[in-house]
Amino acid sequence: MSEAPKYYPTFISLTGRDCLVIGGGTVAQRKIETLLECQARVRVISPQVVSRVAELAAAGSIELVDRGYAEGDLDGAFLVVSATNDAAVNQQVSLEAARRGQLINMVDDPDHSNFIVPATLNRGDITIAVSTAGTSPALARRIKHDIEESIGAEYADVAKLVGGVRRNLLDRGISISPEKWQAALDLEELTGLVRNGRGQQAAEILLTKLVED
Results as ranks from 00 to 15, higher is better:
1 M>H: 09
2 S>G: 05
9 P>L: 11
9 P>R: 07
11 F>N: 15
11 F>P: 10
12 I>E: 10
12 I>H: 10
12 I>N: 05
13 S>Y: 08
14 L>I: 14
18 D>G: 01
19 C>H: 04
19 C>R: 06
20 L>S: 01
21 V>I: 04
21 V>K: 00
23 G>D: 03
23 G>E: 06
27 V>G: 01
28 A>N: 00
29 Q>D: 08
29 Q>T: 04
30 R>C: 02
31 K>C: 04
31 K>T: 10
32 I>L: 10
34 T>G: 14
39 Q>P: 04
40 A>I: 05
48 Q>T: 09
48 Q>H: 07
53 V>P: 02
57 A>F: 06
57 A>K: 03
61 S>K: 05
64 L>K: 00
69 Y>S: 05
69 Y>N: 03
71 E>S: 13
72 G>V: 04
75 D>A: 04
76 G>R: 00
78 F>E: 12
82 S>M: 00
85 N>Q: 10
87 A>E: 12
89 V>W: 03
93 V>D: 02
100 R>P: 02
101 G>Y: 06
102 Q>E: 13
108 D>Y: 03
109 D>K: 01
111 D>T: 11
112 H>T: 08
113 S>R: 01
116 I>G: 13
119 A>R: 02
122 N>V: 13
123 R>Q: 11
124 G>T: 13
127 T>H: 11
128 I>C: 10
131 S>L: 12
132 T>R: 02
133 A>L: 00
135 T>N: 01
136 S>E: 07
136 S>R: 00
139 L>K: 00
140 A>Y: 02
144 K>I: 09
146 D>A: 10
149 E>G: 12
150 S>C: 08
150 S>V: 14
151 I>C: 09
151 I>Q: 07
154 E>P: 10
155 Y>W: 13
155 Y>M: 14
160 K>Y: 08
163 G>S: 09
163 G>R: 06
164 G>Q: 08
166 R>A: 09
166 R>D: 13
167 R>C: 03
169 L>A: 11
170 L>V: 12
174 I>A: 08
175 S>M: 14
175 S>G: 06
178 P>V: 12
178 P>D: 11
180 K>W: 09
188 E>N: 13
189 E>I: 12
192 G>Y: 07
196 N>W: 06
199 G>Y: 07
200 Q>N: 09
201 Q>Y: 09
203 A>P: 05
203 A>M: 13
203 A>V: 06
204 E>D: 15
208 T>L: 14
209 K>E: 14
212 E>L: 15
